[in-house]
Simulated assay, not measured.
Amino acid sequence: MTQALNWQKSTFSGGAEGNACVEIADLRIRVAVRDSKDPAHGSLTFPPRAFAAFVKTLKADTSHTAT
């Protein structure tokens, strides 16, 4: 049985249509990530700790934000 995933888009989605972003779904033992512009193309999954470390690194990197 395949369960429907609860995909969530970042509140930081860029562009007027808000589609320049990724979406994530919490699978409990994995975190799924997909392109919001092409959700049918597939997704990648990561262990929660690895994904959390990735997000923490992104938040700490201020070089990608406009000043």
Rank of each mutant, 00 (worst) to 15 (best):
45 T>S: 13
59 K>V: 11
17 E>P: 00
12 F>G: 07
59 K>P: 01
16 A>Q: 15
8 Q>F: 00
38 D>K: 15
53 A>T: 09
25 A>N: 04
22 V>W: 01
47 P>Y: 03
44 L>K: 08
38 D>R: 15
64 H>L: 15
1 M>R: 13
56 K>Y: 00
50 A>I: 07
53 A>S: 10
5 L>A: 13
17 E>D: 10
49 R>T: 13
48 P>I: 06
28 R>I: 02
6 N>A: 14
7 W>D: 02
49 R>C: 12
28 R>T: 08
37 K>E: 04
12 F>R: 14
37 K>A: 10
55 V>H: 03
37 K>D: 02
67 T>N: 12
50 A>C: 05
56 K>M: 10
51 F>H: 02
67 T>G: 12
39 P>T: 03
61 D>S: 02
57 T>K: 11
65 T>P: 00
60 A>I: 06
57 T>C: 07
8 Q>L: 14
30 R>G: 04
62 T>L: 12
10 S>V: 12
13 S>H: 08
57 T>R: 13
56 K>C: 07
62 T>H: 07
4 A>G: 08
3 Q>L: 11
16 A>G: 12
42 G>K: 09
13 S>C: 15
49 R>E: 15
33 V>Y: 00
56 K>S: 15
38 D>S: 15
45 T>G: 00
5 L>T: 02
51 F>G: 04
8 Q>C: 06
55 V>K: 05
59 K>Y: 00
30 R>S: 10
67 T>M: 10
15 G>V: 09
42 G>V: 04
12 F>A: 13
55 V>C: 10
39 P>Y: 03
32 A>T: 06
39 P>K: 09
53 A>E: 10
17 E>C: 04
63 S>R: 13
48 P>K: 04
61 D>Q: 06
6 N>H: 14
18 G>T: 04
13 S>W: 05
44 L>T: 14
35 D>G: 12
20 A>I: 01
50 A>K: 09
39 P>Q: 06
2 T>H: 09
24 I>L: 11
7 W>N: 02
20 A>V: 00
